[in-house]
Structures are given as C-alpha cells and as structure tokens.
C-alpha cells in the first residue's frame, strides 16, 4: 500500500522538484569536497547542502506531510532552525582549528595572527584593511 497514491498532483510536483533540488545541491556540495584543491576551499562546499539544500528537503517534507495528514505539519522547521544556528558555528570552529594547526606548523599559505605591529606615529596612515592572497606571501616566517 503506497501512501503517495492519494496525494494530489499539485502537491506531488513541487515536492518532487524540491527534493531533487535539495538532494542535487547536497550532491554538488559533497562533490566540492572532492574537486576543490585546499582545505580552506573545501570548507565552502558543504554550505550548499546545509543552507538551500536542507531547506528544500525540509520544505518538501512539510508540504508532503501536510497534504498526507490534511493538517499543517511544521515540526521540520525545528531542523531548519537548528541547522541555521549550528552550521556556522561548526564551520567557524573547524576553520579556526585548521588555521591554528597551520600556523603552529609554520605554513606560509595562511596569514599571520594579526597585522604587523605598528610603530607609534603611523597610526593615522594605517590601512583600513590588509589583503593577503593565499600563496602570494613568500618569504614570511611562520610562528
């Protein structure tokens, strides 16, 4: 007995599209783990799945169960809230851990802890920001 038999078509089509979109984005994000070159590039890849990807799958699930049980089913929002709150935290923790490990090993591909100390009197002309391109900084000493 298939529960999907009594779902109207106007629910089934968006459910199917949202599922395919979400799963496709998750797949692309996971492929990014394979295809991108360095850790700091790879850390961008899973955000595809954790933002729009899971949002689409949750929307599909909400739509489908609301139609199946003929009442609004909203508890999927909880997973959404939870993902929104936790994903940035885990990624930031991982990025900081990776940066810390690279610095202790003296890697040249990561910027130093803070901009070089300023001599007194040069504060007024201090640049607003310092751009550090990865791999472009040669000759810098590690920690």
């Amino acid at each position: 007995m298939n529960p999907a038999a009594d779902i109207p078509l106007w629910v089934a089509v968006p459910t199917a599209l949202l599922l395919l979109l979400g799963a496709g984005l998750a797949l692309v994000g996971s492929l990014g783990l394979l295809r991108l070159g360095s850790f700091y590039e790879r850390i961008h890849a899973p955000t595809l799945g954790t933002t729009l990807g899971i949002a689409s799958v949750l929307a599909a699930s909400m739509l489908y169960f609301s139609a199946l049980q003929t009442r609004p089913v909203l508890h999927e929002i909880l997973i959404g809230i939870f993902m929104v709150v936790t994903t940035p935290v885990t990624l930031m923790l991982l990025a900081r851990a990776a940066l810390y490990r690279d610095r202790t090993e003296g890697s040249r591909d990561v910027p130093l802890p803070s901009p070089p100390p300023q001599r007194p009197g040069t504060d007024a002309s201090a640049p607003d920001s310092v751009i550090v391109q990865s791999g472009a900084e040669k000759g810098r000493q590690g920690l």
Binding site: N2, A4, A5, I7, P8, L9, V13, A16, L19, Y64
Partner: peptide, 8 residues
C-alpha cells in the same frame, strides 16, 4: 502521482 514521487 505515486510513480512521480517514487521516482523523484
């Protein structure tokens, strides 16, 4: 609809 959903 069941086939559509099942395949997707």
């Amino acid at each position: 609809t069941a086939a559509l959903l099942g395949w997707s």
